[in-house]
């Protein structure tokens, strides 16, 4: 498997003790399985304290993609990394709610800065 192939669909970036995953809109099922592998490995290898899942590039999130995001968050949490989903667009938020996917168990933040603030433990500005 080439390096390029491994990064397909979702680059993982390290920011201090936090990891940032940007999910692209061309993720197929295979790429998702790979992403779950890579993310969990990275978390344990770097002993990450926080994970930020950036979905701001997604125009469409159906129940499958919603479950995938929820699963990523759950896996990270089990590995003891606090997980925040950022960048849900207004239209995507409304559509997810209509689909009954409120992702109640996942922490959310408006953008990367906010998520970093949350992970740094200071919600105030």
């Amino acid at each position: 498997m080439s390096r390029h192939g491994a990064d397909r669909g979702a680059p993982i970036l390290a920011l201090g003790r936090n990891l940032v995953v940007s999910i692209r809109d061309d993720l197929d099922d295979q790429a998702i399985v790979e992403l779950q592998d890579r993310l969990t490995e990275e978390i344990s290898r770097r002993r990450a304290e926080g994970v930020i899942i950036d979905v701001s590039r997604l125009d469409v999130v159906d129940t499958f993609a919603g479950r995938m995001i929820g699963a990523l968050a759950k896996m990270s949490r089990i590995l003891d990394a606090r997980t925040v989903v950022v960048g849900v667009r207004p239209a995507v938020a409304m559509t997810l709610v209509e689909l009954g996917m409120t992702l109640g168990e996942v922490e959310t933040a408006l953008n990367l800065d906010r998520a970093l603030e949350i992970l740094a433990g200071s919600k105030s500005r």
Binding site: D59, V60, A91, V92
Partner: peptide
């Protein structure tokens, strides 16, 4: 409106997956 586009695209995605 954007919301209508997103809603319909998501519905299509949902059924296509089915």
């Amino acid at each position: 409106r954007q919301i209508r586009i997103t809603r319909f695209s998501t519905a299509i995605s949902e059924i296509a997956r089915n």
